[in-house]
Lab assay of single mutants.
Amino acid sequence: PREAYIVTIEKGKPGQTVTWYQLRADHPKPDSLISEHPTAQEAMDAKKRYED
């Protein structure tokens, strides 16, 4: 089974940042970016789909 994890990042100019959620996995390479999402819920949904 595949495993993934969610990383929170800040995008934008200082003082005007927006939080994004990255879905990452250690396949095919360590810390590979799988997808980016504007909400934590979307990231969790993507994580479930990826791991299923």
Rank of each mutant, 00 (worst) to 15 (best):
residue 19 T to M: 09
residue 4 A to F: 14
residue 44 M to S: 08
residue 30 P to A: 10
residue 16 Q to C: 14
residue 19 T to N: 06
residue 38 P to E: 11
residue 9 I to H: 04
residue 6 I to H: 00
residue 42 E to V: 03
residue 8 T to M: 14
residue 51 E to R: 06
residue 34 I to A: 01
residue 23 L to N: 01
residue 22 Q to N: 01
residue 48 K to M: 12
residue 40 A to K: 15
residue 17 T to F: 11
residue 46 A to V: 02
residue 48 K to W: 08
residue 21 Y to V: 01
residue 4 A to G: 08
residue 18 V to S: 11
residue 2 R to I: 12
residue 30 P to W: 08
residue 45 D to P: 00
residue 25 A to V: 14
residue 17 T to R: 11
residue 52 D to E: 15
residue 22 Q to Y: 03
residue 14 P to L: 09
residue 25 A to H: 05
residue 14 P to M: 09
residue 26 D to A: 13
residue 33 L to V: 13
residue 8 T to N: 06
residue 10 E to C: 13
residue 21 Y to F: 11
residue 26 D to K: 14
residue 6 I to V: 08
residue 9 I to K: 06
residue 26 D to S: 14
residue 14 P to Y: 11
residue 16 Q to P: 09
residue 29 K to C: 13
residue 16 Q to A: 12
residue 17 T to I: 10
residue 38 P to T: 12
residue 24 R to F: 11
residue 24 R to H: 05
residue 22 Q to G: 02
residue 48 K to Y: 08
residue 7 V to D: 02
residue 36 E to H: 02
residue 8 T to F: 07
residue 49 R to E: 09
residue 39 T to N: 10
residue 18 V to A: 08
residue 27 H to V: 13
residue 10 E to I: 13
residue 38 P to C: 09
residue 32 S to W: 11
residue 33 L to Y: 05
residue 42 E to A: 10
residue 20 W to M: 06
residue 11 K to L: 08
residue 25 A to S: 15
residue 1 P to H: 14
residue 21 Y to T: 00
residue 38 P to W: 06
residue 31 D to I: 03
residue 47 K to P: 00
residue 11 K to I: 09
residue 37 H to M: 02
residue 15 G to I: 03
residue 13 K to W: 12
residue 9 I to Q: 04
residue 34 I to F: 02
residue 40 A to C: 15
residue 21 Y to A: 00
residue 8 T to K: 15
residue 28 P to T: 06
residue 46 A to Y: 04
residue 39 T to K: 03
residue 27 H to I: 12
residue 10 E to H: 11
residue 45 D to K: 11
residue 30 P to Y: 10
residue 20 W to T: 04
residue 15 G to W: 06
residue 8 T to L: 12
residue 32 S to I: 10
residue 36 E to S: 05
residue 46 A to S: 04
residue 12 G to E: 04
residue 42 E to M: 07
residue 37 H to D: 01
residue 18 V to T: 14
residue 28 P to L: 12
residue 3 E to C: 13
residue 21 Y to P: 00
residue 9 I to S: 04
residue 38 P to H: 09
residue 11 K to V: 10
residue 32 S to H: 15
residue 7 V to W: 05
residue 13 K to S: 14
residue 31 D to R: 11
residue 25 A to W: 04
residue 24 R to K: 14
residue 48 K to V: 10
residue 33 L to S: 02
residue 44 M to L: 14
residue 4 A to S: 09
residue 7 V to L: 07
residue 8 T to H: 07
residue 23 L to I: 06
residue 25 A to C: 12
residue 26 D to R: 14
residue 19 T to L: 12
residue 15 G to M: 05
residue 1 P to C: 13
residue 26 D to G: 12
residue 19 T to G: 03
residue 10 E to Q: 14
residue 22 Q to I: 04
residue 4 A to H: 05
residue 21 Y to D: 00
residue 3 E to P: 09
residue 20 W to D: 01
residue 24 R to C: 08
residue 51 E to S: 07
residue 12 G to T: 06
residue 26 D to Q: 08
residue 1 P to W: 14
residue 46 A to E: 04
residue 42 E to S: 08
residue 43 A to G: 02
residue 41 Q to M: 10
residue 34 I to W: 03
residue 18 V to L: 09
residue 15 G to S: 06
residue 4 A to K: 01
residue 14 P to G: 09
residue 47 K to M: 10
residue 28 P to F: 06
residue 40 A to W: 15
residue 15 G to D: 07
residue 41 Q to A: 13
residue 31 D to S: 12
residue 17 T to V: 10
residue 2 R to K: 11
residue 37 H to A: 01
residue 9 I to G: 02
residue 1 P to I: 14
residue 5 Y to G: 01
residue 8 T to Q: 12
residue 14 P to E: 12
residue 41 Q to F: 07
residue 51 E to C: 06
residue 2 R to W: 14
residue 20 W to R: 05
residue 48 K to A: 12
residue 42 E to G: 08
residue 18 V to F: 07
residue 5 Y to R: 13
residue 40 A to Q: 15
residue 25 A to F: 04
residue 15 G to C: 06
residue 51 E to V: 08
residue 23 L to V: 13
residue 39 T to S: 10
residue 43 A to V: 05
residue 7 V to M: 07
residue 17 T to S: 11
residue 28 P to W: 06
residue 9 I to F: 07
residue 48 K to D: 07
residue 28 P to K: 08
residue 29 K to H: 14
residue 21 Y to N: 00
residue 34 I to R: 01
residue 35 S to R: 01
residue 23 L to W: 01
residue 12 G to Q: 05
residue 18 V to D: 10
residue 33 L to C: 07
residue 39 T to Y: 04
residue 34 I to V: 08
residue 40 A to M: 15
residue 39 T to H: 04
residue 8 T to Y: 07
residue 7 V to C: 11
residue 44 M to Y: 13
residue 40 A to S: 08
residue 25 A to R: 11
residue 23 L to S: 00
residue 52 D to A: 15
residue 49 R to I: 12
residue 52 D to W: 12
residue 46 A to K: 02
residue 30 P to E: 08
residue 29 K to E: 14
residue 27 H to K: 11
residue 27 H to T: 11
residue 8 T to D: 04
residue 50 Y to F: 11
residue 47 K to W: 07
residue 38 P to N: 07
residue 29 K to Q: 12
residue 42 E to W: 02
residue 20 W to I: 08
residue 49 R to M: 11
residue 18 V to R: 11
residue 34 I to D: 00
residue 38 P to F: 08
residue 17 T to Y: 12
residue 19 T to S: 06
residue 32 S to G: 06
residue 3 E to I: 15
residue 14 P to S: 08
residue 1 P to M: 13
residue 47 K to H: 05
residue 23 L to E: 00
residue 15 G to P: 15
residue 25 A to I: 14
residue 42 E to T: 05
residue 25 A to N: 05
residue 24 R to Y: 13
residue 3 E to W: 15
residue 37 H to E: 01
residue 27 H to N: 10
residue 34 I to Y: 03
residue 28 P to C: 07
residue 8 T to R: 13
residue 52 D to G: 14
residue 18 V to Q: 12
residue 47 K to F: 05
residue 36 E to P: 00
residue 10 E to F: 10
residue 14 P to K: 11
residue 16 Q to I: 07
residue 21 Y to S: 00
residue 3 E to A: 15
residue 1 P to A: 13
residue 5 Y to L: 03
residue 3 E to D: 10
residue 48 K to N: 09
residue 1 P to V: 14
residue 35 S to T: 03
residue 51 E to P: 04
residue 19 T to A: 05
residue 1 P to F: 14
residue 34 I to L: 08
residue 23 L to Q: 00
residue 19 T to F: 10
residue 17 T to Q: 11
residue 15 G to V: 03
residue 46 A to R: 02
residue 14 P to W: 08
residue 10 E to A: 08
residue 35 S to C: 03
residue 46 A to C: 04
residue 45 D to L: 14
residue 41 Q to S: 11
residue 31 D to P: 08
residue 15 G to T: 05
residue 17 T to N: 06
residue 39 T to E: 03
residue 35 S to M: 01
residue 19 T to P: 06
residue 39 T to F: 04
residue 42 E to D: 11
residue 32 S to C: 07
residue 7 V to N: 04
residue 47 K to Q: 07
residue 11 K to T: 06
residue 31 D to W: 15
residue 36 E to C: 09
residue 46 A to G: 03
residue 31 D to A: 13
residue 5 Y to D: 01
residue 33 L to Q: 03
residue 13 K to H: 13
residue 15 G to N: 07
residue 22 Q to D: 01
residue 31 D to N: 15
residue 44 M to N: 09
residue 12 G to A: 05
residue 27 H to L: 09
residue 12 G to K: 05
residue 13 K to Y: 12
residue 1 P to K: 15
residue 37 H to L: 02
residue 29 K to F: 14
residue 25 A to Y: 05
residue 21 Y to M: 01
residue 36 E to I: 07
residue 10 E to S: 10
residue 16 Q to G: 10
residue 47 K to C: 05
residue 2 R to E: 06
residue 5 Y to C: 04
residue 23 L to P: 00
residue 17 T to C: 08
residue 46 A to I: 01
residue 45 D to T: 09
residue 15 G to K: 05
residue 8 T to I: 14
residue 8 T to G: 05
residue 34 I to E: 01
residue 24 R to L: 06
residue 6 I to D: 00
residue 50 Y to M: 05
residue 8 T to C: 11
residue 21 Y to H: 03
residue 13 K to G: 13
residue 3 E to F: 15
residue 1 P to Y: 14
residue 30 P to F: 10
residue 4 A to I: 10
residue 2 R to M: 11
residue 36 E to Q: 05
residue 40 A to N: 10
residue 40 A to L: 15
residue 22 Q to R: 01
residue 36 E to N: 04
residue 17 T to W: 12
residue 43 A to M: 01
